[in-house]
Design a protein around this nucleic acid. Structure first.
Length: 258
DNA sequence: GGTCGCCTGGTA
DNA sequence: TACCAGGCGACC
């Protein structure tokens, strides 16, 4: 379940598995998805050839040869499975796409918060996302401008996808720790050098979105996330947990400056 | 800006 | 039984 590297991993898997294939049949297995995709739209996916799979932020964009875009967002627990012909979809299969070669592409999502949308040809999704972490357009000057009128703390601001696309709760906390910036510091108060350090930290923790999954990175590599009460890897002070904008924030109260 | 709701599960 | 969960949009 995904932050940007996990989504990138999923996109690569998906591209390799389904590009060039045609959807033979599409089926939804949860009412919250059915609410988004009317039966007629779902039925219209049959016969569509998959031209390519790309990513923008945490959105997966499945380009269909007829010009439409099938957009998938994993939210908290979504993932793709590719089943060989005859394999049974698992308990948490929320959408099943049967392909022309008999394999089935399954959206697996225990919490059922993931979304699927179909965008008509000629009307690609308008996502209103900021630059990707790896985008050279992500500069201290850019962040200065975006944060200038924000009164609130930096941590929730980093989760705003309109500012930076793809940063999630874990890596926002990790990046702030690396840059030694306290999560409650006002976004607008950060100087250019500190923003430069923050950008470098974001790139370091996200990696190059090489597709390493959180579970494969292993919790041992994380500096603060989910480490409440454990010693800061830099200074030994116990890590603290607070709640900001309804999300957990983990940080070191000693070496992350206020 | 903050809080809640969406859903359902895993874990203390 | 209660709390927590990697996201995000609606609402105040």
């Amino acid at each position: 379940m995904p932050e940007l590297p996990e989504v990138e991993h999923a996109v690569r898997l998906l591209r390799r598995a389904v590009r060039g294939r045609t959807i033979a049949h599409a089926e939804l297995r949860h009412p919250s998805l059915a609410r988004r995709l009317p039966p007629a739209v779902l039925a219209s996916l049959a016969g569509a050839r998959i031209a390519d799979v790309t990513r923008r932020g945490k959105h997966q964009l499945i380009a269909l040869a007829d010009g439409r875009t099938l957009r998938a967002h994993f939210r908290m627990t979504g993932d793709w499975l590719v089943l060989r012909a005859g394999e049974e979809p698992p308990r948490f299969a929320r959408a099943v796409f049967e392909l022309d070669d008999g394999r089935r592409l399954v959206l697996e999502d225990s919490r059922a918060l993931a979304t699927l949308d179909v965008h008509p040809a000629g009307a690609p999704p308008a996502l209103d996302l900021g630059p990707e972490p790896a985008d050279p357009a992500l500069t201290p000057e850019y962040l200065r401008a975006r944060f200038a009128r924000r009164r609130g703390p930096i941590k929730p601001a980093l989760l705003d996808q309109r500012v930076i696309a793809g940063l999630g709760n874990i890596y926002a906390a990790e990046a702030l720790w690396r840059a030694r910036i306290g999560p409650r510091v006002r976004a607008s108060s950060l100087s250019r050098p500190r923003l430069a350090a923050l950008i470098a930290a974001i790139r370091a923790v996200i990696g190059r979105a090489t597709g390493a999954r959180y579970t494969e990175i292993g919790a041992a590599r994380l500096a603060v996330y989910d480490r409440e009460g454990l010693k800061c890897r830099r200074c030994g002070t116990p890590i603290r947990r607070i709640v900001q904008a309804g999300r957990s924030t983990y940080y070191c109260p000693a070496c992350q400056r206020r």
